[in-house]
C-alpha cells in the first residue's frame, strides 16, 4: 500500500540570464532537479551563485530563458500561488501588528474575512505567537519576527514552502531554536505543507535539516552536487557521519 511520492516541482534544463547594460549575464545554467512531496531540500552555494534567483523561478516571479519549470506536472507560466516564501530579513511591514502581518499574504487569496482571521489565529498558535497578536515588529526579538514570517507563509497553506536563508540574520541560539521548531512543523504530517526548499550558506544547517542538499557552483550557478543525507534525525554535529557530509559539501564548493 506504499504510495509513490509525487513529484511536486521539476526544473528541466533551466537557464536564467539577466540583461545588464554591459550585456547578458548567465546566472543559472542547465539546472535540472525534482522535488518530491514531503522532501526537505536545501540549496547551498557561494554568494552570487543564483540561489535566490532559483527560488524566484520556483515561485514564478521569474521565468527561465531556456528550459522549463513544471509544478505538479504542468509548466508554470505565471505566479505560483501554491508556494510561499520566508525571507532572511523577515519581510514584515513595520506599521502592521503581528496579526496583520500574518494576514497579509491571505488577502489576495481569501476574500472571506472570517476565514482569514481563523487562519491567522491557527497559525499564530502553531508558531508560538499567541500573546503577541497586537505587537509591532519593532517590539519583537529576531526570533519572534521570523516566527511571524513563518506564520505568514504557513497561513497561505502552500503545498511548497520556500525559504531564503531564513536563519542567517538570527543569533546562534535563536537559530537553533527556530531550526528545531521548523523541523517539528515539517515532520507534523497533519500540516498542509510538508515539502520545503531552503537556501542556506550554512553547511552544517543544511546537513542537520535536509533530506537532500543541492550544491551550486559560482557564476554561472550549476549543480555540482546533489547529496542525499542518510542520517537519522535529530542530527547532531558530533554524530557519526556528520563530519563526512560536511567535508563532502565543502570539497564540492571549493
Amino acid at each position: 500500500m506504499t504510495e509513490q511520492p509525487q513529484t511536486l516541482i521539476e526544473l528541466d534544463h533551466v537557464t536564467k540570464r539577466f540583461t545588464l547594460p554591459q550585456g547578458d549575464v548567465t546566472v543559472l545554467q542547465d539546472i535540472s532537479f525534482k522535488a518530491v512531496e514531503g522532501e526537505f531540500i536545501t540549496i547551498v552555494g557561494p554568494s552570487g551563485a543564483g540561489k535566490s534567483t532559483l527560488l524566484r523561478l520556483m515561485n514564478g516571479l521569474l521565468h527561465p530563458n531556456e528550459g522549463k519549470v513544471l509544478y505538479q506536472g504542468k509548466q508554470m507560466r505565471g505566479i505560483n500561488y501554491e508556494t510561499a516564501m520566508v525571507f532572511q530579513n523577515f519581510g514584515l511591514l513595520p506599521w502592521l501588528t503581528v496579526s496583520q502581518n500574518i494576514e497579509l499574504g491571505l488577502e489576495a487569496r481569501t476574500k472571506d474575512p472570517v476565514l482569514r482571521s481563523e487562519r491567522v489565529r491557527m497559525y499564530t498558535t502553531k508558531v508560538g505567537l499567541e500573546g503577541y497578536e497586537e505587537a509591532y515588529p519593532r517590539e519583537l526579538s529576531g526570533g519572534m519576527k521570523q516566527r511571524v514570517g513563518l506564520a505568514r507563509a504557513l497561513a497561505i497553506e502552500p503545498s511548497l514552502l520556500l525559504m531564503d536563508e531564513p536563519f542567517s540574520s538570527l543569533d546562534v541560539l535563536t537559530s537553533i531554536n527556530l531550526r528545531n521548531e521548523l523541523l517539528d512543523i515539517w515532520s507534523d504530517r497533519d500540516n498542509v505543507v510538508n515539502t520545503m526548499i531552503m537556501v542556506t550558506h550554512n553547511i552544517e544547517e543544511a546537513i542537520e535539516l535536509s533530506d537532500r542538499i543541492i550544491v551550486l557552483s559560482n557564476r554561472p550557478g550549476r549543480i555540482v552536487g546533489d547529496i542525499r543525507i542518510d542520517l537519522p534525525r535529530p542530527r547532531k554535529k558530533r554524530d557519526k557521519g556528520f563530519i563526512e557530509y560536511v567535508d563532502r559539501v565543502f570539497s564540492l564548493l571549493a
Partner: peptide, 8 residues
Amino acid sequence: GISQILGL
C-alpha cells in the same frame, strides 16, 4: 528573547 533561551 524566549527563542534564545529555548535555543540554549
